[in-house]
Design a protein around this nucleic acid. Sequence first.
DNA 1: TCTGGGGTCCTAGGACCC
DNA 2: TCTGGGGTCCTAGGACCC
Length: 416
Amino acid sequence: MYALVDCNNFYASCERVFNPNLQFSPIAILSNNDGCVISRSDEAKALGLPMGAPIFKWENFCKQNNIEILSSNYPLYGDMSSRTMEILKQFTPDIEVYSIDEAFLKLNILDDYNAYGIQMRQRILKWLGLPTSVGIAPTKALSKIANKIARKYPKKTKGVYVIDNENKRIKALKWTKLNDVWGIGSRLEKRLQAKGCKTAYDFIQLPDALILKEFSIVEWRLKKDLQGIPTLKLEEVKNKQAIATTRSFETTYTDLNAIKERISTFAARCAEKLRAQQSSCHSMVILLRSDRFDTSGKQHNVSRCVSFSYPTNSTLTLCNAAVKTIETMFKAGVKYKRAGVIVTGLISNTNKQLNFFEKEDTKQLHLMRAIDDLNFKYNGYKVKLGNQDLKRTWKMKQERLSPKYTTNFDEIIIVK
DNA sequence: TCTGGGGTCCTAGGACCC
DNA sequence: TCTGGGGTCCTAGGACCC
């Protein structure tokens, strides 16, 4: 059996743990740059504040309804997340950390799955103060649905729901709307509706042959999983395949130089992330996007891939390539709103293959180590390249940030 | 004035190989 | 008139996830 353990309203719940004043008030957490709402407490949901609401349009609404608005505090959430996962690992080593706030567990116990789920839930609540929902079923896709039921009916289920027989499975599938199925997004929902499907149950009535012919192997696997035939397995902990640094700008840019400065910083950040996990990349994708909300402006969305002759994690190499590439992508007259760098083809430093004709520049390796050491030592005062945004005229908007209670001694909670 | 960011997986099509 | 088949690798783009 598989269990899916999911923290309820994770970001909002993390804030509550350390700030009792928020215990009963509606809360909304904002995205980077304080742009839109990405997490809400149950009270805020009940008031009608939608997910993804751009805050500038909903500011008054929040004020009228006394919704507390907070900037996102990723150091706090990341730390609370790893504490949650540590607790779950006490129950089984077979765990897949699926996202910051949820994990799949493979359970091999003989009886009473419900009691087991209750135990997991209570331990996380008691030790961390975080409420969770637990769904248990024979497959991953079904455990997602069980989880949704537990979440939807907290009183009746006490936060834990187990699908352990055919009746429950069929009932759950008929209850689940297409769009609520894990793996069915809005596009797929439309295509399935055209086939006459409304619920997950309707979807699994479609014949295998039709699914393979008109959809793909992905949907076929999903169908099997929903039928109770385990097809989606627990994913091993594996190295990342890509590392990204992408941002929306706080304003739009029409000036190539400004974009070059930003893209150079994104590339530098990717290089730092690579070095931190002791790996290198052999290619890099540069993205450039115009303002999608500016309907009158010219739209221009491009991405371009660059390959290196041998795997690298040097800030110099990545920044230079990124800046050179962006020059070829930029179109004058377009208002650009977002850009990013993604490094792919990641390989561990210990077994990277060098090019036969070129020697790895060891000087650069030493330089990078020196830069990383300095940046670590003088936290906040970074050594940067000349083509990065040295003046740093922009800054991330985080006007309502809570303290880093668990990861910074200066911000630790004070008990009076 | 102000609309997130970081990932994964799949497919199609082209280039190239024997 | 007739011109194979099977494979890999790469890139771009789409869809989906939280």
